[in-house]
Design a protein around this nucleic acid. Structure first.
Length: 154
DNA sequence: GCCAACGTTGGC
DNA sequence: GCCAACGTTGGC
């Protein structure tokens, strides 16, 4: 297998939390409706790539878990579901607009690595999280991944 | 709840 | 193709 990259995926814990993922083990990462985020899932994510799991709009916000990319990209089924808030009338089964991957649980971190802590750490100043704060699926450098996992050990 | 950042839409 | 209006994200 080609060497993959590391990623960060965001979720509001009231919507879908690390505990939900720990229980379900694996979930289709539905509802992403941003083209940059979609392109990462469709074009760059590889099965087995590590992904930090980030709680946004939380108290505090921060990285709370480690997951893994668990599937090839495929169309987000919710774009075809008229009752879903993620329904997209401009998409079709013949030419689906939104692609996703499955995300699988690896571990809950021993403690949260908060956004404040990330902002204050010199090795993490260049993180996409701080530069592209609204992007919900984003790349993480290998060195950044290692620093965050080490911080989580306390 | 406020608001800054920024992506999307649509008129022209 | 420009850009104003609008909607969403997410920190605080």
């Amino acid at each position: 297998m080609a060497e993959g990259r590391a990623w960060l995926v965001k979720s509001e814990p009231g919507d879908y939390s690390i505990d939900d993922l720990a229980r379900e083990k694996r979930v289709p990462w539905t509802g992403v409706r941003n083209y940059k985020a979609r392109n990462f899932m469709r074009d760059a994510m590889k099965v087995g790539d590590p992904a930090l799991f980030y709680h946004s709009n939380a108290d505090p916000s921060g990285v709370v878990g480690l997951a893994r990319v668990a599937s090839e990209p495929y169309p987000d089924p919710l774009q075809f579901d008229r009752r879903s808030p993620y329904f997209d009338a401009k998409s079709s089964r013949e030419d689906p607009r939104w692609q996703l991957v499955d995300i699988a649980f690896v571990e809950k971190l021993p403690r949260i690595v908060s956004l404040g802590e990330i902002k204050g750490h010199p090795a993490l100043k260049e993180m996409a999280l701080l530069k592209l704060s609204r992007l919900s699926v984003q790349p993480v450098r290998e060195a950044e991944l290692q620093v965050i996992l080490r911080l989580a050990e306390g």
